[in-house]
């Protein structure tokens, strides 16, 4: 039964299977998708309640508030990224599979983004409307959130991998990830502000895009290394 040259499954198969499994799990527990979304919406509601409903102020602060809320919502969803895998032992299975771990980590991160990042991008226009942002600004907001949440998921996966299995992991995760995420927030929110002021904003988009590409190519390796260390 044991062949000399067993055929190893390809890496795209591994990527696809990991992503698919995590999406399937999320589908069976829709709370995981909805909770960060509600959180996002609620933080965006808190702000007008705190500073008052004046449209000029809301237009001025809107991009920043939406971006901070998106950052916090992503952070909230991150600590579950590897937690259940760690608890039920499937993380060990991933660590000891024939697939390169960075590919599997990327698959899981991709699923995380599809579950938590993409929905934020999709509902952001609704919330942006309540802040009286114009259609062009909303487009820029969606574009920056699209790129930005990719960056945040990838960065966050490193933090989640470093803190998996630690007590008080959530607070620690925020402490690790927030300073790393600051450039993303800074680029994203200011690009939207520039668009709101009718200033040229392309630089920010390019920079975010470059960040996303760099994170996409480097973060999975860091995440894989961190997962191996956390599981020692």
């Amino acid at each position: 039964m044991i062949s000399d040259k067993p055929s190893q499954p390809g890496i795209f198969r591994g990527l696809y299977a990991t992503t698919r499994r995590d999406l399937l799990l999320a589908w069976k527990r829709p709370g995981d998708i909805l909770n960060p979304l509600f959180f996002f919406a609620m933080v965006c509601t808190l702000f007008p309640l705190a500073v008052g409903p004046s449209p000029e102020q809301l237009i001025f602060f809107g991009p920043g508030v939406l971006w901070v809320a998106a950052l916090l919502a992503t952070l909230l969803s991150l600590n579950t990224l590897f937690l259940s895998d760690h608890e039920d032992g499937s993380l060990e299975q991933l660590l000891l599979s024939a697939q390169p771990l960075p590919v599997l980590a990327l698959g899981k991160t991709l699923a995380h983004w599809l579950i938590s990042g993409l929905p934020l991008v999709i509902i952001s226009p609704l919330l942006a409307m309540t802040y009286h942002l114009s259609a062009t600004v909303v487009e820029v907001l969606m574009l920056t959130l699209f790129l930005g949440t990719i960056c945040l998921s990838l960065l966050g996966s490193i933090g989640a991998a470093l803190t998996v299995g630690l007590h008080r992991g959530t607070a620690l995760l925020s402490l690790l990830i927030l300073p790393l995420a600051m450039p993303v927030l800074l680029l994203g929110a200011n690009t939207v502000s520039l668009a709101a002021d009718n200033d040229p904003y392309a630089t920010g988009i390019w920079a975010l895009g470059a960040y996303a590409v760099a994170a996409l190519s480097l973060a999975p390796y860091a995440t894989a290394a961190a997962l191996r260390i956390s599981n020692e």
């Binding site: 067993p6 055929s7 190893q8 499954p9 198969r13 591994g14 696809y16 299977a17 990991t18 698919r20 499994r21 399937l24 799990l25 069976k28 527990r29 259940s84 039920d88 499937s90 299975q93 991933l94 599979s97 024939a98 697939q99």
Partner: peptide
């Protein structure tokens, strides 16, 4: 995975090794 069925679980495993 407790949330997945036997077949879903084992299907995933097929992508992990020969």
């Amino acid at each position: 995975k407790g949330d997945l069925t036997l077949l879903e679980n084992l299907n995933f495993e097929t992508s992990l090794r020969p």
